[in-house]
Amino acid sequence: MKTLVAASVLFAGLALADLPAAEQKPEVVPEAAAPKHPQGIENAGAGVISGGWEYVYAAYTLGTLGVLGFATSLFFRRPKAQPERTS
């Protein structure tokens, strides 16, 4: 009974917040969301931002090093008793 009451209060709170459900899907929005170009899309050149390769390489290196680093940390914390190896 009290659980029901609390649950309905929760829903009332959610309804009050009127969360726009459709807009919350993160998968719709790859962060390609650049602000609108002032001259309009058709007038924009092939690339509004030129260069920036060092940032791209930094991001890819970070991702790869992150995977390697986390895997290494898991390897060093692996359970001692078990004979199988951890990656």
Binding site: E31, G47, Y55, V56, A59, Y60
Partner: peptide, 30 residues
């Protein structure tokens, strides 16, 4: 993914090559 993101994919319309970061950034957040 290094090859696909850095070479195979065309530059993004607005961000050109910087947009390639999204191929690794967005999946991490997901």
């Amino acid at each position: 993914l290094w090859y696909l993101g850095l070479v195979w994919a065309p530059p993004e319309q607005f961000m050109s090559d910087v947009g390639r970061i999204l191929y690794v950034h967005v999946p991490h957040v997901w």
